[in-house]
Design a protein around this nucleic acid. Structure first.
Lengths: 298, 298
DNA sequence: GCCTGTTGGTGTATCGTTTTACCGGCGCTC
DNA sequence: GAGCGCCGGTAAAACGATACACCAACAGGC
Protein backbone atom coordinates (compact mmCIF):
# COMPACT_ATOMS: atom_id res chain seq x y z
CA UNK A 1 0.00 0.00 0.00
CA UNK A 2 2.45 2.62 1.13
CA UNK A 3 5.77 3.30 -0.56
CA UNK A 4 8.71 1.45 1.00
CA UNK A 5 12.39 2.15 1.12
CA UNK A 6 12.92 -0.67 -1.37
CA UNK A 7 10.89 1.03 -4.04
CA UNK A 8 12.76 4.26 -3.49
CA UNK A 9 16.03 2.37 -3.79
CA UNK A 10 14.95 0.80 -7.04
CA UNK A 11 13.82 4.14 -8.44
CA UNK A 12 17.11 5.80 -7.54
CA UNK A 13 19.14 2.80 -8.66
CA UNK A 14 20.87 2.33 -5.32
CA UNK A 15 20.55 -0.07 -2.43
CA UNK A 16 18.09 0.40 0.44
CA UNK A 17 21.05 1.00 2.72
CA UNK A 18 21.97 4.06 0.74
CA UNK A 19 18.47 5.46 0.97
CA UNK A 20 18.54 4.84 4.71
CA UNK A 21 21.87 6.64 4.91
CA UNK A 22 20.46 9.66 3.12
CA UNK A 23 17.45 9.61 5.42
CA UNK A 24 19.61 9.63 8.49
CA UNK A 25 22.18 12.15 7.35
CA UNK A 26 25.00 9.64 6.99
CA UNK A 27 26.01 11.18 3.68
CA UNK A 28 29.60 12.16 4.47
CA UNK A 29 31.15 9.77 1.97
CA UNK A 30 28.54 9.79 -0.71
CA UNK A 31 28.60 11.38 -4.13
CA UNK A 32 26.43 14.50 -4.05
CA UNK A 33 24.92 13.27 -7.26
CA UNK A 34 23.81 10.03 -5.63
CA UNK A 35 22.26 11.89 -2.77
CA UNK A 36 20.31 14.10 -5.14
CA UNK A 37 19.04 11.08 -7.06
CA UNK A 38 17.78 9.52 -3.83
CA UNK A 39 16.16 12.71 -2.68
CA UNK A 40 14.39 13.11 -5.96
CA UNK A 41 13.08 9.57 -5.81
CA UNK A 42 11.82 10.16 -2.27
CA UNK A 43 10.03 13.32 -3.29
CA UNK A 44 8.61 11.86 -6.46
CA UNK A 45 7.20 8.75 -4.84
CA UNK A 46 6.02 10.63 -1.79
CA UNK A 47 7.90 8.20 0.41
CA UNK A 48 7.55 8.42 4.20
CA UNK A 49 9.53 6.03 6.39
CA UNK A 50 7.44 3.52 8.27
CA UNK A 51 7.67 4.48 11.92
CA UNK A 52 6.78 1.06 13.22
CA UNK A 53 9.60 -0.58 11.32
CA UNK A 54 12.00 2.12 12.35
CA UNK A 55 11.03 1.81 15.99
CA UNK A 56 11.23 -1.95 15.90
CA UNK A 57 14.76 -1.77 14.59
CA UNK A 58 16.15 1.14 16.58
CA UNK A 59 14.05 0.94 19.72
CA UNK A 60 13.58 4.68 19.47
CA UNK A 61 10.39 6.52 18.67
CA UNK A 62 9.71 10.20 18.17
CA UNK A 63 6.95 10.43 20.66
CA UNK A 64 6.43 12.40 23.82
CA UNK A 65 4.18 11.34 26.68
CA UNK A 66 2.36 14.28 28.21
CA UNK A 67 0.89 13.50 31.61
CA UNK A 68 -1.34 16.23 33.03
CA UNK A 69 -3.93 16.13 35.79
CA UNK A 70 -6.69 16.98 33.35
CA UNK A 71 -6.66 18.69 30.01
CA UNK A 72 -10.16 19.94 30.78
CA UNK A 73 -8.52 22.43 33.10
CA UNK A 74 -7.87 25.47 30.87
CA UNK A 75 -4.42 25.91 32.34
CA UNK A 76 -3.36 22.42 31.30
CA UNK A 77 -5.22 22.73 28.04
CA UNK A 78 -3.25 25.79 27.10
CA UNK A 79 -0.11 24.11 28.31
CA UNK A 80 -0.84 21.00 26.25
CA UNK A 81 -1.34 23.05 23.14
CA UNK A 82 1.96 24.81 23.61
CA UNK A 83 3.77 21.55 24.23
CA UNK A 84 2.20 19.98 21.18
CA UNK A 85 3.15 22.81 18.88
CA UNK A 86 6.75 22.80 20.06
CA UNK A 87 6.97 19.02 19.82
CA UNK A 88 5.57 19.06 16.31
CA UNK A 89 8.39 21.29 15.14
CA UNK A 90 10.87 18.62 16.19
CA UNK A 91 8.91 15.87 14.52
CA UNK A 92 7.55 14.55 17.79
CA UNK A 93 3.98 13.38 18.30
CA UNK A 94 2.28 13.91 21.63
CA UNK A 95 0.44 11.18 23.49
CA UNK A 96 -2.12 12.67 25.83
CA UNK A 97 -2.52 11.20 29.31
CA UNK A 98 -4.95 12.54 31.91
CA UNK A 99 -3.89 11.31 35.31
CA UNK A 100 -6.85 12.82 37.16
CA UNK A 101 -4.47 13.24 40.09
CA UNK A 102 -4.50 9.53 40.71
CA UNK A 103 -1.09 8.07 41.56
CA UNK A 104 -2.17 4.69 40.30
CA UNK A 105 -3.32 6.02 36.94
CA UNK A 106 -0.11 7.97 36.69
CA UNK A 107 1.93 4.83 37.22
CA UNK A 108 -0.23 2.90 34.78
CA UNK A 109 0.26 5.52 32.10
CA UNK A 110 4.01 5.39 32.59
CA UNK A 111 3.81 1.63 32.26
CA UNK A 112 1.84 1.90 29.01
CA UNK A 113 4.19 4.51 27.63
CA UNK A 114 7.18 2.39 28.49
CA UNK A 115 5.61 -0.63 26.80
CA UNK A 116 4.99 1.50 23.73
CA UNK A 117 8.64 2.48 23.61
CA UNK A 118 7.93 6.07 24.56
CA UNK A 119 10.87 6.96 26.72
CA UNK A 120 10.40 10.73 26.98
CA UNK A 121 7.75 11.95 29.33
CA UNK A 122 6.70 15.37 30.52
CA UNK A 123 5.09 14.76 33.88
CA UNK A 124 2.85 17.39 35.42
CA UNK A 125 2.00 16.09 38.83
CA UNK A 126 1.27 17.90 42.03
CA UNK A 127 0.79 14.72 43.97
CA UNK A 128 2.19 14.71 47.48
CA UNK A 129 4.39 11.79 46.58
CA UNK A 130 5.68 10.64 43.23
CA UNK A 131 7.86 7.83 44.45
CA UNK A 132 6.12 5.64 41.86
CA UNK A 133 8.22 7.21 39.10
CA UNK A 134 11.46 5.92 40.62
CA UNK A 135 11.28 2.48 38.93
CA UNK A 136 10.82 4.12 35.53
CA UNK A 137 13.83 6.36 36.00
CA UNK A 138 15.79 3.27 36.85
CA UNK A 139 14.63 1.54 33.69
CA UNK A 140 16.02 4.47 31.72
CA UNK A 141 12.94 6.57 31.06
CA UNK A 142 13.63 10.26 30.64
CA UNK A 143 11.14 12.08 32.82
CA UNK A 144 10.92 15.81 33.25
CA UNK A 145 8.65 17.07 35.98
CA UNK A 146 6.89 20.35 35.37
CA UNK A 147 5.39 22.65 37.95
CA UNK A 148 6.75 20.62 40.79
CA UNK A 149 9.38 22.08 42.98
CA UNK A 150 11.44 19.19 44.20
CA UNK A 151 10.44 17.98 47.60
CA UNK A 152 11.41 15.47 50.21
CA UNK A 153 11.01 11.94 48.93
CA UNK A 154 11.15 12.90 45.27
CA UNK A 155 13.62 10.87 43.24
CA UNK A 156 16.82 12.93 43.35
CA UNK A 157 17.63 12.28 39.70
CA UNK A 158 14.33 13.76 38.50
CA UNK A 159 14.70 16.91 36.43
CA UNK A 160 12.42 19.77 37.37
CA UNK A 161 11.16 22.70 35.36
CA UNK A 162 8.96 24.92 37.40
CA UNK A 163 7.67 28.43 37.86
CA UNK A 164 9.21 30.71 40.42
CA UNK A 165 6.52 30.32 43.05
CA UNK A 166 7.83 32.80 45.54
CA UNK A 167 8.48 35.54 43.01
CA UNK A 168 5.06 35.03 41.47
CA UNK A 169 3.31 35.39 44.79
CA UNK A 170 5.38 38.45 45.59
CA UNK A 171 4.51 40.08 42.27
CA UNK A 172 0.81 39.38 42.66
CA UNK A 173 0.77 40.67 46.20
CA UNK A 174 2.85 43.78 45.46
CA UNK A 175 0.54 44.58 42.59
CA UNK A 176 -2.44 44.66 44.92
CA UNK A 177 -0.55 46.66 47.53
CA UNK A 178 0.38 49.23 44.91
CA UNK A 179 -3.28 49.57 44.05
CA UNK A 180 -3.82 50.59 47.64
CA UNK A 181 -5.32 47.42 49.04
CA UNK A 182 -4.64 46.77 52.71
CA UNK A 183 -6.93 43.90 53.63
CA UNK A 184 -5.75 40.94 51.59
CA UNK A 185 -6.80 37.33 51.43
CA UNK A 186 -4.84 34.34 50.18
CA UNK A 187 -6.91 31.41 48.95
CA UNK A 188 -5.49 27.95 48.53
CA UNK A 189 -6.39 24.35 49.01
CA UNK A 190 -4.36 22.17 51.28
CA UNK A 191 -0.76 23.28 51.31
CA UNK A 192 0.45 19.81 50.43
CA UNK A 193 3.14 20.69 47.95
CA UNK A 194 6.27 22.78 48.02
CA UNK A 195 4.71 24.82 45.21
CA UNK A 196 1.85 25.91 47.38
CA UNK A 197 4.00 26.44 50.41
CA UNK A 198 6.33 28.73 48.48
CA UNK A 199 3.42 30.69 47.05
CA UNK A 200 1.92 31.16 50.48
CA UNK A 201 5.30 32.17 51.90
CA UNK A 202 5.79 34.67 49.08
CA UNK A 203 2.44 36.22 49.93
CA UNK A 204 3.09 36.34 53.66
CA UNK A 205 6.57 37.77 53.37
CA UNK A 206 5.34 40.52 51.05
CA UNK A 207 2.48 41.66 53.26
CA UNK A 208 4.84 41.46 56.19
CA UNK A 209 7.44 43.67 54.52
CA UNK A 210 4.69 46.14 53.68
CA UNK A 211 3.86 46.45 57.36
CA UNK A 212 0.34 45.12 56.97
CA UNK A 213 -1.13 44.11 60.31
CA UNK A 214 -1.71 40.42 60.83
CA UNK A 215 -5.42 40.89 61.42
CA UNK A 216 -5.77 42.42 57.96
CA UNK A 217 -4.45 39.29 56.33
CA UNK A 218 -6.77 36.35 55.79
CA UNK A 219 -5.36 33.00 54.79
CA UNK A 220 -7.69 30.28 53.63
CA UNK A 221 -6.30 26.78 53.45
CA UNK A 222 -9.01 24.31 52.69
CA UNK A 223 -8.52 21.04 54.47
CA UNK A 224 -10.59 19.05 51.99
CA UNK A 225 -9.86 15.65 50.55
CA UNK A 226 -6.33 14.86 49.53
CA UNK A 227 -7.00 14.33 45.86
CA UNK A 228 -9.22 17.29 45.06
CA UNK A 229 -10.07 17.72 41.39
CA UNK A 230 -10.09 20.99 39.52
CA UNK A 231 -13.80 21.55 39.82
CA UNK A 232 -13.44 21.02 43.53
CA UNK A 233 -10.82 23.74 43.54
CA UNK A 234 -13.23 26.17 41.95
CA UNK A 235 -15.88 25.24 44.50
CA UNK A 236 -13.42 25.70 47.34
CA UNK A 237 -12.44 29.12 46.00
CA UNK A 238 -16.06 30.10 45.69
CA UNK A 239 -16.91 29.04 49.23
CA UNK A 240 -13.80 30.73 50.53
CA UNK A 241 -14.67 34.05 48.90
CA UNK A 242 -18.23 33.93 50.16
CA UNK A 243 -17.18 33.11 53.68
CA UNK A 244 -14.36 35.67 53.79
CA UNK A 245 -16.55 38.42 52.37
CA UNK A 246 -19.20 37.83 55.00
CA UNK A 247 -16.79 38.58 57.83
CA UNK A 248 -16.83 41.88 59.69
CA UNK A 249 -13.68 43.19 58.00
CA UNK A 250 -13.76 41.55 54.58
CA UNK A 251 -10.73 41.55 52.30
CA UNK A 252 -10.72 43.99 49.39
CA UNK A 253 -8.54 41.83 47.20
CA UNK A 254 -7.62 38.18 46.75
CA UNK A 255 -4.55 36.24 45.77
CA UNK A 256 -5.29 32.69 44.66
CA UNK A 257 -2.79 29.88 44.48
CA UNK A 258 -3.82 28.94 40.94
CA UNK A 259 -6.29 29.62 38.16
CA UNK A 260 -9.00 27.25 39.32
CA UNK A 261 -9.10 28.74 42.83
CA UNK A 262 -9.13 32.19 41.21
CA UNK A 263 -12.08 31.28 39.01
CA UNK A 264 -13.87 30.07 42.10
CA UNK A 265 -13.06 33.24 44.00
CA UNK A 266 -14.44 35.34 41.15
CA UNK A 267 -17.68 33.37 41.31
CA UNK A 268 -17.84 33.76 45.07
CA UNK A 269 -17.33 37.50 44.79
CA UNK A 270 -20.21 37.70 42.34
CA UNK A 271 -22.34 35.52 44.63
CA UNK A 272 -21.83 38.16 47.29
CA UNK A 273 -23.32 40.70 44.92
CA UNK A 274 -20.00 42.39 44.28
CA UNK A 275 -18.17 43.03 41.06
CA UNK A 276 -14.73 41.65 40.34
CA UNK A 277 -12.33 44.41 39.39
CA UNK A 278 -14.60 47.08 40.81
CA UNK A 279 -15.97 46.31 44.27
CA UNK A 280 -13.20 43.79 44.80
CA UNK A 281 -9.64 43.82 43.50
CA UNK A 282 -10.12 47.31 42.06
CA UNK A 283 -7.49 47.53 39.36
CA UNK A 284 -7.04 48.57 35.78
CA UNK A 285 -8.30 45.31 34.38
CA UNK A 286 -10.45 42.82 36.21
CA UNK A 287 -8.10 40.08 37.25
CA UNK A 288 -4.45 39.35 36.72
CA UNK A 289 -2.77 36.05 36.12
CA UNK A 290 0.88 36.27 36.92
CA UNK A 291 2.93 33.24 37.83
CA UNK A 292 6.20 34.12 36.15
CA UNK A 293 7.62 31.42 33.94
CA UNK A 294 11.10 31.07 35.26
CA UNK A 295 13.06 27.87 35.03
CA UNK A 296 14.89 26.11 37.77
CA UNK A 297 16.58 23.10 36.33
CA UNK A 298 19.07 20.52 37.32
CA UNK B 1 15.58 -5.36 27.56
CA UNK B 2 11.88 -6.01 27.53
CA UNK B 3 10.30 -9.45 27.68
CA UNK B 4 9.51 -10.94 24.27
CA UNK B 5 7.04 -13.47 23.09
CA UNK B 6 9.90 -15.93 22.64
CA UNK B 7 10.76 -15.89 26.30
CA UNK B 8 7.13 -16.41 27.23
CA UNK B 9 6.98 -19.33 24.82
CA UNK B 10 10.06 -20.89 26.36
CA UNK B 11 8.70 -20.42 29.87
CA UNK B 12 5.37 -22.01 28.95
CA UNK B 13 7.07 -24.73 26.91
CA UNK B 14 5.15 -23.91 23.74
CA UNK B 15 5.93 -22.17 20.46
CA UNK B 16 5.67 -18.42 19.97
CA UNK B 17 2.73 -19.06 17.66
CA UNK B 18 0.76 -20.51 20.51
CA UNK B 19 1.46 -17.54 22.71
CA UNK B 20 0.33 -15.29 19.91
CA UNK B 21 -2.83 -17.32 19.54
CA UNK B 22 -3.62 -16.94 23.21
CA UNK B 23 -2.96 -13.24 22.98
CA UNK B 24 -5.36 -12.83 20.12
CA UNK B 25 -8.12 -15.07 21.37
CA UNK B 26 -7.59 -17.81 18.83
CA UNK B 27 -7.90 -20.47 21.49
CA UNK B 28 -10.80 -22.46 20.09
CA UNK B 29 -8.77 -25.59 19.47
CA UNK B 30 -6.34 -25.39 22.28
CA UNK B 31 -6.11 -27.45 25.44
CA UNK B 32 -7.38 -25.30 28.33
CA UNK B 33 -4.37 -26.45 30.24
CA UNK B 34 -2.03 -25.07 27.60
CA UNK B 35 -3.81 -21.77 27.63
CA UNK B 36 -3.49 -21.50 31.38
CA UNK B 37 0.22 -22.30 31.20
CA UNK B 38 0.72 -19.51 28.68
CA UNK B 39 -1.30 -17.04 30.68
CA UNK B 40 0.65 -17.79 33.79
CA UNK B 41 3.93 -17.30 31.97
CA UNK B 42 2.68 -13.97 30.62
CA UNK B 43 1.66 -12.79 34.06
CA UNK B 44 4.77 -14.02 35.74
CA UNK B 45 7.19 -12.43 33.32
CA UNK B 46 5.13 -9.26 33.05
CA UNK B 47 5.09 -9.62 29.29
CA UNK B 48 3.58 -6.86 27.14
CA UNK B 49 3.44 -7.27 23.37
CA UNK B 50 5.65 -4.91 21.44
CA UNK B 51 3.34 -2.53 19.64
CA UNK B 52 5.84 -1.61 16.97
CA UNK B 53 6.35 -5.21 15.94
CA UNK B 54 2.66 -5.87 16.02
CA UNK B 55 1.93 -2.84 13.92
CA UNK B 56 4.66 -3.69 11.46
CA UNK B 57 3.18 -7.12 10.96
CA UNK B 58 -0.51 -6.30 10.90
CA UNK B 59 -0.53 -2.73 9.68
CA UNK B 60 -2.96 -1.94 12.42
CA UNK B 61 -2.35 0.14 15.49
CA UNK B 62 -4.52 0.88 18.48
CA UNK B 63 -4.29 4.60 18.20
CA UNK B 64 -6.79 7.35 17.66
CA UNK B 65 -6.00 10.70 16.10
CA UNK B 66 -7.87 13.52 17.76
CA UNK B 67 -7.93 16.68 15.69
CA UNK B 68 -9.38 19.70 17.48
CA UNK B 69 -9.11 23.41 16.73
CA UNK B 70 -7.29 24.02 19.96
CA UNK B 71 -7.20 22.13 23.21
CA UNK B 72 -6.63 25.44 24.96
CA UNK B 73 -10.31 26.11 24.42
CA UNK B 74 -11.98 24.68 27.54
CA UNK B 75 -14.73 23.14 25.45
CA UNK B 76 -12.25 21.11 23.42
CA UNK B 77 -10.13 20.45 26.48
CA UNK B 78 -13.08 18.86 28.24
CA UNK B 79 -13.95 17.02 25.08
CA UNK B 80 -10.40 15.73 24.69
CA UNK B 81 -10.38 14.42 28.22
CA UNK B 82 -13.62 12.55 27.69
CA UNK B 83 -12.39 11.08 24.44
CA UNK B 84 -9.13 10.04 26.02
CA UNK B 85 -10.80 8.30 28.94
CA UNK B 86 -13.14 6.37 26.68
CA UNK B 87 -10.35 5.44 24.29
CA UNK B 88 -8.20 4.22 27.15
CA UNK B 89 -10.83 1.73 28.16
CA UNK B 90 -10.59 0.11 24.72
CA UNK B 91 -6.83 0.06 24.83
CA UNK B 92 -6.47 2.97 22.46
CA UNK B 93 -3.95 5.75 22.83
CA UNK B 94 -4.83 9.28 21.77
CA UNK B 95 -2.60 11.40 19.58
CA UNK B 96 -3.35 15.06 20.11
CA UNK B 97 -3.49 17.36 17.09
CA UNK B 98 -4.29 21.08 17.30
CA UNK B 99 -5.33 22.27 13.88
CA UNK B 100 -5.71 25.91 14.90
CA UNK B 101 -8.46 26.08 12.31
CA UNK B 102 -5.94 25.92 9.52
CA UNK B 103 -6.99 23.66 6.63
CA UNK B 104 -3.38 23.13 5.68
CA UNK B 105 -2.38 22.05 9.18
CA UNK B 106 -5.40 19.80 9.27
CA UNK B 107 -4.35 18.11 6.05
CA UNK B 108 -0.77 17.83 7.26
CA UNK B 109 -1.87 16.17 10.48
CA UNK B 110 -3.92 13.67 8.53
CA UNK B 111 -0.89 12.98 6.39
CA UNK B 112 1.27 12.40 9.45
CA UNK B 113 -1.32 10.19 11.06
CA UNK B 114 -1.64 8.16 7.90
CA UNK B 115 2.11 7.75 7.69
CA UNK B 116 2.11 6.58 11.30
CA UNK B 117 -0.46 3.93 10.49
CA UNK B 118 -3.17 5.67 12.50
CA UNK B 119 -6.26 5.02 10.47
CA UNK B 120 -8.92 6.15 12.93
CA UNK B 121 -9.42 9.85 13.31
CA UNK B 122 -11.91 11.95 15.20
CA UNK B 123 -12.01 15.22 13.32
CA UNK B 124 -13.43 18.32 14.97
CA UNK B 125 -13.43 20.94 12.30
CA UNK B 126 -15.74 23.84 11.71
CA UNK B 127 -13.93 24.94 8.60
CA UNK B 128 -16.12 26.15 5.77
CA UNK B 129 -14.70 23.44 3.54
CA UNK B 130 -13.13 20.13 4.42
CA UNK B 131 -12.68 18.83 0.92
CA UNK B 132 -9.07 18.12 1.88
CA UNK B 133 -10.18 15.02 3.78
CA UNK B 134 -11.54 13.37 0.65
CA UNK B 135 -8.19 11.84 -0.42
CA UNK B 136 -7.76 10.27 3.00
CA UNK B 137 -11.19 8.69 2.91
CA UNK B 138 -10.27 7.26 -0.45
CA UNK B 139 -7.07 5.82 0.96
CA UNK B 140 -9.15 3.99 3.53
CA UNK B 141 -8.83 6.20 6.58
CA UNK B 142 -11.78 6.04 8.96
CA UNK B 143 -12.73 9.59 9.76
CA UNK B 144 -15.57 10.64 11.99
CA UNK B 145 -16.46 14.29 12.00
CA UNK B 146 -17.72 15.73 15.24
CA UNK B 147 -19.75 18.89 15.72
CA UNK B 148 -20.12 19.37 12.01
CA UNK B 149 -23.50 19.04 10.44
CA UNK B 150 -22.91 17.82 6.94
CA UNK B 151 -22.89 20.58 4.41
CA UNK B 152 -22.62 21.13 0.71
CA UNK B 153 -19.26 20.05 -0.61
CA UNK B 154 -18.52 17.73 2.31
CA UNK B 155 -17.44 14.25 1.28
CA UNK B 156 -20.70 12.26 1.22
CA UNK B 157 -19.10 9.21 2.82
CA UNK B 158 -18.00 11.14 5.89
CA UNK B 159 -19.69 10.05 9.11
CA UNK B 160 -21.02 12.79 11.31
CA UNK B 161 -21.70 12.91 15.01
CA UNK B 162 -23.06 16.23 16.05
CA UNK B 163 -25.19 18.07 18.56
CA UNK B 164 -28.77 18.91 17.77
CA UNK B 165 -28.19 22.54 16.91
CA UNK B 166 -31.75 23.56 16.39
CA UNK B 167 -33.07 21.89 19.52
CA UNK B 168 -30.25 23.39 21.57
CA UNK B 169 -31.00 26.88 20.41
CA UNK B 170 -34.70 26.35 21.03
CA UNK B 171 -34.07 25.14 24.57
CA UNK B 172 -31.80 28.04 25.37
CA UNK B 173 -34.22 30.57 23.95
CA UNK B 174 -37.29 29.04 25.59
CA UNK B 175 -35.48 29.05 28.90
CA UNK B 176 -34.97 32.79 28.67
CA UNK B 177 -38.53 33.37 27.52
CA UNK B 178 -39.83 31.42 30.48
CA UNK B 179 -37.82 33.66 32.77
CA UNK B 180 -39.80 36.53 31.33
CA UNK B 181 -37.25 38.05 28.99
CA UNK B 182 -38.64 39.79 25.93
CA UNK B 183 -35.70 41.61 24.40
CA UNK B 184 -33.26 38.92 23.33
CA UNK B 185 -29.94 39.02 21.52
CA UNK B 186 -28.23 36.26 19.59
CA UNK B 187 -24.45 36.55 19.33
CA UNK B 188 -22.45 34.65 16.77
CA UNK B 189 -19.48 35.01 14.52
CA UNK B 190 -19.90 34.62 10.80
CA UNK B 191 -22.60 32.13 10.03
CA UNK B 192 -20.30 30.11 7.85
CA UNK B 193 -21.32 26.64 8.91
CA UNK B 194 -24.53 24.69 8.92
CA UNK B 195 -24.07 24.38 12.69
CA UNK B 196 -24.28 28.10 13.19
CA UNK B 197 -27.06 28.51 10.70
CA UNK B 198 -29.18 25.91 12.47
CA UNK B 199 -28.51 27.49 15.85
CA UNK B 200 -29.52 30.88 14.56
CA UNK B 201 -32.64 29.43 12.93
CA UNK B 202 -33.56 27.67 16.14
CA UNK B 203 -33.31 30.96 17.99
CA UNK B 204 -35.31 32.90 15.40
CA UNK B 205 -38.06 30.34 15.07
CA UNK B 206 -38.50 30.21 18.85
CA UNK B 207 -38.79 33.95 19.35
CA UNK B 208 -41.07 34.03 16.36
CA UNK B 209 -43.38 31.40 17.79
CA UNK B 210 -43.45 33.29 21.08
CA UNK B 211 -44.77 36.32 19.24
CA UNK B 212 -41.81 38.51 20.07
CA UNK B 213 -41.71 41.58 17.87
CA UNK B 214 -38.87 41.75 15.37
CA UNK B 215 -37.52 44.98 16.83
CA UNK B 216 -37.02 43.28 20.19
CA UNK B 217 -34.69 40.73 18.67
CA UNK B 218 -31.07 41.62 18.06
CA UNK B 219 -28.89 39.39 15.97
CA UNK B 220 -25.18 39.93 15.91
CA UNK B 221 -23.23 38.20 13.16
CA UNK B 222 -19.66 39.35 13.17
CA UNK B 223 -18.21 39.59 9.71
CA UNK B 224 -14.62 39.24 10.89
CA UNK B 225 -11.86 37.18 9.35
CA UNK B 226 -12.67 33.74 8.08
CA UNK B 227 -10.37 31.83 10.37
CA UNK B 228 -11.07 33.50 13.68
CA UNK B 229 -9.42 31.83 16.67
CA UNK B 230 -11.10 31.20 19.97
CA UNK B 231 -9.72 34.24 21.67
CA UNK B 232 -11.05 36.28 18.79
CA UNK B 233 -14.45 34.75 19.42
CA UNK B 234 -14.33 35.95 23.03
CA UNK B 235 -13.33 39.41 21.85
CA UNK B 236 -16.14 39.47 19.32
CA UNK B 237 -18.63 38.43 21.98
CA UNK B 238 -17.34 41.09 24.31
CA UNK B 239 -17.58 43.84 21.69
CA UNK B 240 -21.02 42.60 20.67
CA UNK B 241 -22.35 42.77 24.22
CA UNK B 242 -20.94 46.23 24.80
CA UNK B 243 -22.35 47.56 21.57
CA UNK B 244 -25.76 45.92 21.99
CA UNK B 245 -26.08 47.13 25.59
CA UNK B 246 -25.37 50.71 24.59
CA UNK B 247 -28.36 50.84 22.26
CA UNK B 248 -31.60 52.60 23.21
CA UNK B 249 -33.49 49.38 23.88
CA UNK B 250 -30.79 46.96 25.06
CA UNK B 251 -31.42 43.22 25.31
CA UNK B 252 -32.03 41.75 28.75
CA UNK B 253 -30.63 38.34 27.86
CA UNK B 254 -28.20 36.77 25.42
CA UNK B 255 -27.94 33.53 23.55
CA UNK B 256 -24.45 32.80 22.24
CA UNK B 257 -23.58 30.35 19.54
CA UNK B 258 -20.86 28.70 21.61
CA UNK B 259 -18.92 28.88 24.85
CA UNK B 260 -16.24 31.27 23.67
CA UNK B 261 -18.75 33.83 22.43
CA UNK B 262 -20.64 33.38 25.69
CA UNK B 263 -17.51 34.04 27.73
CA UNK B 264 -16.97 37.18 25.69
CA UNK B 265 -20.54 38.29 26.19
CA UNK B 266 -20.19 37.86 29.96
CA UNK B 267 -17.11 40.06 29.90
CA UNK B 268 -18.90 42.67 27.80
CA UNK B 269 -21.82 42.70 30.20
CA UNK B 270 -19.45 43.32 33.07
CA UNK B 271 -17.68 46.03 31.06
CA UNK B 272 -21.02 47.78 30.85
CA UNK B 273 -21.14 47.82 34.63
CA UNK B 274 -23.85 45.17 34.79
CA UNK B 275 -23.95 41.84 36.52
CA UNK B 276 -24.40 38.56 34.70
CA UNK B 277 -27.31 36.61 36.13
CA UNK B 278 -28.72 39.67 37.86
CA UNK B 279 -28.86 42.79 35.68
CA UNK B 280 -28.64 40.64 32.57
CA UNK B 281 -29.97 37.14 31.97
CA UNK B 282 -31.73 37.17 35.37
CA UNK B 283 -32.15 33.48 36.12
CA UNK B 284 -31.70 30.99 38.90
CA UNK B 285 -28.02 30.51 38.21
CA UNK B 286 -25.83 32.91 36.35
CA UNK B 287 -25.43 31.36 32.92
CA UNK B 288 -26.57 28.18 31.31
CA UNK B 289 -24.73 25.98 28.88
CA UNK B 290 -27.14 23.81 27.01
CA UNK B 291 -26.31 22.34 23.63
CA UNK B 292 -27.97 18.96 23.93
CA UNK B 293 -25.81 16.03 23.04
CA UNK B 294 -27.91 14.22 20.52
CA UNK B 295 -26.46 12.11 17.78
CA UNK B 296 -27.22 12.24 14.13
CA UNK B 297 -25.30 9.56 12.40
CA UNK B 298 -25.05 7.88 9.05
C1' DG C 1 54.94 -5.91 -7.68
C1' DC C 2 53.11 -5.81 -3.19
C1' DC C 3 50.97 -3.62 0.50
C1' DT C 4 47.96 -0.07 2.43
C1' DG C 5 44.37 3.35 2.56
C1' DT C 6 40.50 5.71 0.74
C1' DT C 7 36.29 6.13 -1.81
C1' DG C 8 31.53 5.00 -2.45
C1' DG C 9 28.92 2.29 -1.67
C1' DT C 10 26.26 -2.93 -0.93
C1' DG C 11 24.65 -7.53 1.44
C1' DT C 12 22.56 -9.44 5.11
C1' DA C 13 21.10 -10.25 9.67
C1' DT C 14 18.03 -8.34 12.82
C1' DC C 15 14.14 -6.14 15.64
C1' DG C 16 9.18 -8.97 17.77
C1' DT C 17 4.99 -10.27 16.18
C1' DT C 18 1.45 -12.51 13.17
C1' DT C 19 -0.07 -15.74 9.82
C1' DT C 20 -0.24 -19.38 6.50
C1' DA C 21 0.84 -23.72 5.57
C1' DC C 22 1.75 -27.82 7.33
C1' DC C 23 2.55 -31.98 10.46
C1' DG C 24 2.24 -36.35 13.25
C1' DG C 25 -0.84 -39.07 15.64
C1' DC C 26 -5.15 -40.81 16.62
C1' DG C 27 -9.87 -42.68 15.85
C1' DC C 28 -13.37 -43.83 12.56
C1' DT C 29 -15.39 -45.58 8.54
C1' DC C 30 -15.99 -48.59 4.66
C1' DG D 1 -6.06 -51.92 6.36
C1' DA D 2 -6.25 -47.83 3.41
C1' DG D 3 -8.12 -43.45 3.48
C1' DC D 4 -10.01 -39.45 5.70
C1' DG D 5 -10.79 -35.91 9.09
C1' DC D 6 -9.83 -33.88 13.39
C1' DC D 7 -6.95 -32.42 17.15
C1' DG D 8 -3.42 -29.60 19.06
C1' DG D 9 -0.30 -27.54 17.95
C1' DT D 10 4.62 -25.90 15.24
C1' DA D 11 7.90 -23.93 11.48
C1' DA D 12 9.02 -20.39 8.85
C1' DA D 13 8.18 -16.49 6.12
C1' DA D 14 6.87 -12.23 6.13
C1' DC D 15 6.41 -6.79 7.62
C1' DG D 16 10.09 -2.27 6.56
C1' DA D 17 13.95 -0.02 8.25
C1' DT D 18 18.76 0.04 10.18
C1' DA D 19 23.57 -1.17 11.20
C1' DC D 20 27.50 -3.83 10.85
C1' DA D 21 30.71 -6.05 8.20
C1' DC D 22 32.41 -6.26 4.03
C1' DC D 23 33.81 -5.32 -0.92
C1' DA D 24 35.65 -3.78 -5.50
C1' DA D 25 38.25 -0.37 -7.61
C1' DC D 26 41.74 2.63 -7.69
C1' DA D 27 45.82 5.58 -6.09
C1' DG D 28 50.07 6.07 -3.94
C1' DG D 29 54.39 4.69 -1.65
C1' DC D 30 58.56 2.04 -1.49
Amino acid sequence: MAVTIQEVARAANVSPSTVSNVLNGRDSRMLPETKVRVEQAIAQLGYRPNRAARQLRTGRIQMLGLVVPSVANPFWGTFAQLVESVALRSGFRVLLCNSERDPQREAEYLEELWADGVSSVLLCSSLPSISHVQPFLERGMTIVAFDRTSQLGDPPSLTNVSVDNSLGAQLATSHLLELGHRRLAFVSGRVHSVNRKERLDGFLSTVDRAGIAANEVLVWKDSGSGRAGDLDAAEVGRAAARELLSRPCPPTAFVATNDMFAIGVCAGVRDAGLRVGADVGRSSGSTTSCWPISLSRR
